[in-house]
């Protein structure tokens, strides 16, 4: 794949660009890592006061939260900057990208890859390690595979959500923070066991939008627990499939969005 070398060159260029602002990079990297720490702290505070919430112990809740956190941290680092699309449109970067012989989305992502978010991934990995340690997982080859696959599926799923909510700007320039209801909102939703939620809100987020399959269902499968909401045990293994569907939808919407692109000014 000759294109891969081109993308590699773009990432290298982005890395060297960032390296010319060393201090801001370090400041931003540490404050970024703190957001992950705060997310986890929130879970600890809310669950820590009690023995169990909605039938889940602190250790089990931590497993759900850390799976979500790792998938989200990966997606936010690799794809999250797509939500700057509006800025790219205004600065003309989008035009420049479209006259080059590479895919527009990959190019955008490679040209503005936020390396400062890397520490969050490390932190999320550590928390996942702790959560695994605290829970008594009965390891099978299937569960080992699931442990590796579900954060990757989380990456793809959240990546798709990032692309979808950014694509809104192609049609609705003033969409403002609307996208974050699904990106950061999705992260918050997936940080807790689904039985915490109720009613149509749960049905929409967990099943219609698929957020239930990011962390909650895989965590149940890892723990060998039955779902109090009645989904079968193998539902946890659906997460790669759900992520794939989301990615296909996101790719189609992005393509349609680029066709609909209006550019700006002169």
């Amino acid at each position: 794949m000759a294109d891969l070398r081109a993308y590699g060159a773009l990432i290298g260029g982005q890395f060297r660009s960032i390296a010319s602002y060393r201090v801001s990079f370090l400041v931003e990297m540490s404050s970024n890592a703190m957001t992950t720490a705060l997310d986890i702290t929130t879970v600890l505070v809310l669950f820590g006061a009690n023995r169990s919430v909605a039938g889940f112990s602190l250790a089990e809740a931590l497993l759900v939260a850390s799976l979500s956190s790792l998938g989200f941290a990966l997606a936010d680092m690799l794809v999250g900057n797509v939500d700057h699309l509006k800025t790219y449109v205004r600065s003309g970067l989008m035009d420049v990208i479209l006259v080059r012989p590479l895919g527009s989305l990959w190019q955008l992502l490679c040209m503005d890859l936020p390396f400062r978010k890397a520490l969050r991934v490390v932190l999320a990995l550590v928390v996942l390690g702790v959560a695994i340690h605290l829970n008594d997982v009965d390891w099978t080859p299937g569960r080992v595979a699931l442990l590796v696959l579900s954060p990757l599926a989380g990456l793809v799923f959240f990546g798709a959500i990032f692309v979808l909510s950014a694509s809104l700007a192609f049609w609705w320039v003033d969409s403002g923070e609307l996208g974050s209801a699904f990106t950061y909102g999705g992260r918050d939703f997936t940080s807790y066991p689904v039985p915490v939620y109720a009613g149509w809100f749960r049905a929409v987020f967990a099943y219609a939008l698929g957020f239930g399959f990011v962390a909650y269902q895989p965590a149940l499968a890892l723990l060998g627990r039955t779902d109090p909401l009645g989904l079968p045990a193998w539902a946890g293994y659906l997460s790669p499939l759900v992520a794939l569907v989301a990615a296909v939808v996101a790719a189609l919407v992005w393509r349609a969005g680029v066709r609909h692109y209006r550019s700006t000014g002169s």
């Binding site: 023995r51 919430v53 003033d174 923070e177 609307l178 974050s180 209801a181 939620y197």
Partner: peptide
């Protein structure tokens, strides 16, 4: 942008409300 922002506040309202109510119930 105001409408979009209010929508986002509402979504987060649902999220946080369910979580905190589950904590209270436990």
């Amino acid at each position: 942008a105001t409408i979009a922002g209010a929508f986002t506040n509402v979504v987060f309202g649902f999220l946080r409300c369910y979580v905190i109510l589950a904590v209270a119930a436990a």
